[in-house]
Write a protein that binds this DNA or RNA. Structure first.
Length: 941
RNA sequence: GCCCAGAUGGCGGAAUUGGUAGACGCGCUAGACUCAAAAUCUGGUUUCAGCAAUGGAGUGCAGGUUCGAUUCCUGUUCUGGGCACCA
């Protein structure tokens, strides 16, 4: 028998499928373990070698846990709604459902090649009506709930209505402080209303107010509008002012949009991070995104010519610096600017506002010039009445805090630069801490020139200042967040329809019985009128007054981990029994790119479902592992400009030329390159029209390519298809090699070269079972002899090492562990069942096919994947006698055989009895003898 | 600019709590088998000096703590990632 991996792998993949070997039941008496991969968006490009990295790691862990006696849930599915399929539909007229189905089939075929242990009976697809029915249902839960700030959790909106009927909203103020209700009958101060007022409101007014509380709500707001994509994007989908997908420009636009009131969960999302096992980097990304800061809002009286506006409010995190305020700055978008501008400054202000308007978001972010204009008005310092000029500048953002700041140039770098630029005098309140050259944001200075705060340490003065502000009624303690409510609608076709009906401008939820509201067929995927989605083109849809937006890509992915627990349930999104049993995802593997998108949204949805009593846990993922990116290792050829001559990399001059001639640097398909040496014939055939007559200037008879590490992509010809590697080396080799590349978390460039080594290892392992004779035959050579102590030692050490490595996700050293084991057994000429059988069980998570094949060859009838993971015995791990290094004062002198069973005391005796040691320490009594971790004995004289 | 992570042979990377740095693999190299090549197997492979035994240096750079530092501390350089007018 040769190691014919292709037939072995096909055979066992089929067998596992036939036996439904990976089908898992909800509760089979064993402890549960939930291993989840971030499900893929099935793109048309198929898998490259980077995609399976995380899947292989999770598969190894899932299989390992199964062997360890756990009931393991390890499902897979598809994030099937999304922009690319729709874009493809617009360009090629193919229905997104059709292209998505085709892409899924490709993905599935590629995944199956690698031998994963997914329970495919639990597959979910977010675009399946039986799935998105429950996405819509959860949306209705969000729509029909509000966040009760007093209990800090989501509660049904029906309860809020009862409260309004009894006491108005005194104890439940409208979350948006800027909200103003225009009602002809009542003037509502600070958006507060009584029970009688509530009762007198008409339906429209009541619904408008309720909309201000709903966790999924509709409102007008500035959104990130992408003209090229014809849709709105969430903040995390915009990178540097352009869309994450496609890199199209994004502008601010006011539109009616659906939102998730995720800001209400800011604190709990932050708190929850303490209870989960995510990397520090990941936690930090999330908490930066939430961006909690605490400080105070301070009201400044305004002294202006017109006198129309008598005060404004600024937000600061440093109320202790109140006496260092030398000017105030308000955002150009604020509506009261015209009312405070003086006659003299009117023209300058108007010019400035026009200038700001002319600048795009992108320019503003890219340039960061210091610009601004004086309004002619003054703010009065609430404590000493000092007149403070009020400026307008684009560096103050309207959307954060109050859109107005108090500027303290000696303590804040931006304020300092602004003051210098406009020659505003600077007050120094921190003495020597301020050198006049740059601002110093310290909190450890003693305050000066600060009225009643003089002599106080800044960190202590914060509290004192807030107290004083509150006592005077000119300020309050205030917490702010950078995070905004998440835009939750898209003017697109390929997404979940909202289960919402509009009647007289009021949004009403559909009944649960009307779900799923299925996506209708459309004739064209182009946008509807006035920035609306394609659904607005359908007469029947609009006649039914249905919402024409669809949900964004992250809707379906915010809860899919729950559906896997009970995927066929058509009564509920998942039974409480199932969610109680499977509970949190014990191990979640995926990339960091979802740090502030998917991971935050799914955490929020989980919390809402928990608050409403639908599930019993409020964090979805117990442990998160971020796999690193696999980068492409690109190869280049260099053509002399204007010729068909290609110059080998080593012949190129330091200034990237060849004998003074310019070179074109051309990406070449990495699959034609062996290491760095180009397969010249394959290269010519590749693009025959262009390179067919290529001539090569060689070095040592070879054409050497240039290399660079870049992102893996088709256009750079640096993608490697796993199918090809599986075909050539087998899935087991491919799996182990992906792991062998390095730690799962680390990003690394793909290099196919080393795969031979792993393949050689598997062949060597095979030869422990089958001996190749000189005549070319293979003979079964496993015997039933009892293992020797040396062999058992080798085995048990390997069990311990590989188990440890697997537990701590160090799969690369785990693979090394197998290599060492096989090398040692080969050296020992050990072909004993007693040793080889447990080895196969350990191997099964890493290389399941070969393990299964040899397991059956040993005469086992049941599958290796149902075996028990071997345990190790301590006694085989302990060295009975070992060569110990002995050092005197840290300087190593010799080695000695010492019995390890001896206690530390006995070792001292042994050491001191040794003549050589006695000579070294020259008859002196050692001060101490340090016995270090079974490794070294050090004598300090 | 701010925050985080990292830097180890020709290469990918090991060293789990401070204890003989360089496991394992690639590559290179010598040898075996072969008419030959491929495949396979065996040995060598941090570097400098030496025929060798052996000795010196060595984990980005400069210091420190320690009998002993890749590991801990301070400073510094570079690389990767994240955030970026959030007051």
């Amino acid at each position: 028998m040769e190691y014919n991996f292709n037939s072995i792998e096909k055979k066992w993949q089929q067998a596992w499928k036939d036996q439904q070997a990976y089908k898992v039941s909800n509760d089979n008496g064993r402890p549960k373990f939930y291993v989840l991969d971030m499900f893929p968006y099935p793109s048309g490009a198929g898998l490259h070698v980077g995609h399976p990295l995380g899947y292989i790691a999770s598969d190894i862990y899932a299989r390992y846990k199964r062997l360890k006696g756990f009931n393991v849930l390890h499902p897979m599915g598809y994030d099937a709604f999304g922009l690319p399929a729709e874009q493809y539909a617009i360009e090629h007229g193919v229905h997104p459902a059709v292209s998505t189905q085709k892409n899924i089939e490709t993905f599935r075929r590629q995944l199956d090649n690698i031998g994963f242990s997914f329970d495919w009976s639990r597959e979910v697809r977010t675009s399946d009506p039986q799935y998105y029915r429950w996405t819509q249902w959860i949306f209705l839960q969000l729509f029909n709930s509000f966040f009760n700030r007093n209990t800090q959790k989501a509660e049904p909106i029906a309860g809020l209505i009862k409260i309004f009927e009894q006491e108005g909203n005194v104890h439940h103020p409208i979350p948006n402080e800027k909200f103003v209700l225009n009602n002809s009958q009542f003037t509502i101060r600070k958006s507060q209303f009584s029970s009688t007022q509530w009762a007198s409101f008409d339906e429209a007014t009541q619904q408008t107010i309720l909309m201000e509380y709903r966790l999924a709500f509709c409102g007008y707001g500035e959104v990130n509008w992408c003209e090229a994509l014809g849709t709105v994007l969430a903040n995390d989908e915009v990178v540097n002012g352009v869309s994450e997908r496609g890199g199209h420009p994004v502008e601010k636009k006011k539109l009616r949009q659906w939102y998730l009131r995720i800001t209400e969960y800011a604190d709990r999302l932050l708190e929850g991070l303490k209870t989960v096992d995510f990397s520090e980097a990941m936690k930090e990304m999330q908490s930066n995104w939430i961006g909690k800061s605490s400080g105070a809002e301070i009201t400044f009286a305004i002294k202006s010519e017109q006198g129309k506006v008598d005060h404004f409010t600024a937000y600061t995190t440093r109320p202790d610096t109140i006496f260092g305020v030398d000017f105030c700055v308000i955002a150009p978008e604020l509506d009261y600017i015209a009312d405070i501008t003086s006659k003299e400054q009117k023209e300058a202000v108007e010019n400035y506002l026009a200038y700001v308007k002319s600048r795009s978001e992108r320019e503003r972010m890219a340039e960061k010039k210091i610009t601004g204009v004086f309004t002619g008005a003054y703010a009065l310092n609430p404590f000493d009445g000092k007149e403070i000029p009020i400026w307008i500048s684009e560096y103050v953002l309207a959307g954060y805090g109050t859109g107005a700041i108090m500027a303290v140039p000696c303590g804040d770098e931006r304020d300092y630069k602004f003051a210098k630029h406009f020659n505003i005098p600077i007050t120094n309140i921190i003495g020597d801490h301020f050198n006049g050259e740059e601002a110093n944001p310290t909190k450890d200075a003693i305050l000066q020139h600060s009225g009643f705060l003089n002599g106080m340490l800044m960190r202590d003065a914060m509290e004192a200042a807030i107290k004083a502000l509150e006592e005077k009624g000119v300020g309050t303690r205030k917490v702010n967040y950078k995070m905004r409510d998440a835009a939750f609608s898209r003017q697109r076709y390929w997404g979940e329809p909202f289960p919402i009906k509009w009647i007289n401008g009021i949004a009403y939820a559909l009944n649960e019985g009307e779900l799923p509201l299925t996506l209708p067929e459309v004739e064209s995927y182009s946008p509807g009128p006035e920035g609306e989605g394609p659904l607005a083109n359908i007469t029947d849809w609009t006649a039914r007054q249905l919402e024409t937006n669809t949900m964004p890509g992250y809707a379906g992915s915010s809860w899919y981990f729950l559906r896997y627990m009970d995927p066929q349930n058509d009564e509920q999104f998942a039974s409480r029994e199932a969610t109680d049993y499977w509970n949190q995802v014990d191990l979640y593997i995926g990339g960091t790119e979802h740090a502030v998108g998917h991971l935050l949204y799914s955490r929020m949805w989980t919390k809402v479902l928990h608050d409403l009593g639908h599930i019993g846990f409020d964090e979805p993922f117990k442990k998160l592992v971020n796999q690193g990116m696999v980068q492409g290792s690109s190869r280049f050829v260099y053509r002399i400009n204007g010729t068909n001559q290609f110059v080998s990399h080593g012949l190129i001059d330091a200034n990237h030329e060849y004998k003074g001639q310019l070179l074109d640097k051309i990406h070449v398909d990495v699959n034609f390159v062996d290491g760095v040496e180009l397969d010249r014939d394959a290269f010519k055939k590749w693009k025959n029209a262009e390179f067919g007559d290529a001539e090569f200037l060689l070095e040592d008879g070879k054409y050497i390519c240039g290399t660079e590490t870049e992102k893996m992509s088709k256009t750079k010809y640096n993608t490697v298809n796993p199918d090809d590697l599986v075909e050539k080396y087998g899935a087991d080799t491919f799996r182990m090699y992906e792991m062998f590349l390095g730690p799962v978390e680390m990003s690394k460039p793909w290099d196919t070269k080393g795969i031979e080594g792993v393949h050689r290892f598997l062949k060597k392992l095979w030869r422990l079972f089958y001996k190749e004779t000189n005549s070319g035959e293979s003979v079964w050579q496993v015997n039933e002899d009892a293992a020797t102590a040396a062999e058992l030692k080798v085995l048990h050490r390997a069990i311990k090492k590989i188990e440890d490595d697997t537990e701590r996700f160090s799969f690369n050293t785990g693979v090394s562990g197998f290599m060492i084991l096989v090398n040692e057994l080969t050296d020992l000429k050990c072909h004993k069942r007693e040793i080889l059988e447990p080895m196969l069980v350990m191997l099964a998570p890493y290389a399941p096919h070969i393990a299964e094949e040899l397991w059956h060859a040993l005469g086992n009838t049941s599958s290796v994947i149902d075996a028990n993971y071997p345990g190790f015995e301590e006694k085989y791990l302990v060295e009975t006698s070992k060569e110990y290094p002995i050092s005197i004062n840290g300087k190593m002198r010799t080695t000695m055989h010492i019995s390890l069973s001896a206690e530390q005391q006995e070792i001292e005796t042994l050491v001191l009895a040794n003549d050589v040691v006695q000579k070294w320490i020259d008859g002196k009594t050692p001060k101490k003898i340090i016995y270090v971790k079974n490794k070294m004995v050090n004598i300090v004289v």
